[in-house]
Simulated scan of single mutants.
Amino acid sequence: MKTSNPLTDRYRPLQSNLTDSPPLIIDTAANPQDILEGALQRIRASSDLLKTLHCICFKNGDVEDIPHITHALFLLTQDGCDLLQVAQQQMLNWKAPA
């Protein structure tokens, strides 16, 4: 039987962390509005970057820029998805007032 640990249950590491002791975490007890805002901010930034890439010409671009851009897109999108997952879990656990 799995026992509940309030510290590890409350603070969820971002999947984009690459270290054994993750420095970036989500406080699952934070205001749901703040969690959603954080998710929207990251997904919107990712979407804006993709829109910019769609509109520019790569003729004069440097091939070394591609991994930098894709890495930024990955971080923004993954962190946004992690935040959305926490917000979704909060909604599933939310009890409507009787």
Rank of each mutant, 00 (worst) to 15 (best):
V86Y: 00
L75P: 11
G80S: 03
Q90P: 04
D65T: 05
N60I: 00
G61Q: 14
A72T: 14
L73R: 06
Q90Y: 01
C57Y: 08
Q78S: 10
F74Q: 12
Q88A: 04
N60A: 10
D79H: 07
C55M: 08
N60G: 11
F58C: 14
L75I: 06
Q85L: 03
I56N: 12
V63P: 14
L75Q: 09
V63N: 10
I66H: 10
Q88Y: 02
N60L: 06
F58R: 15
H54A: 15
Q85G: 09
P67D: 01
E64Q: 11
D82W: 08
H54Y: 08
L73E: 04
C57F: 03
I66L: 13
H68F: 03
T70Y: 00
L75K: 05
L83W: 02
V86I: 08
D79F: 01
Q89W: 00
L92Q: 12
C55Q: 13
V86E: 00
L73I: 11
D82Q: 13
C55H: 10
H71Y: 10
P67G: 00
P67C: 01
D65N: 07
T70Q: 05
V63Y: 09
G80D: 01
T70M: 07
Q90R: 07
C55A: 13
G80W: 02
I66W: 09
H54P: 15
Q78N: 10
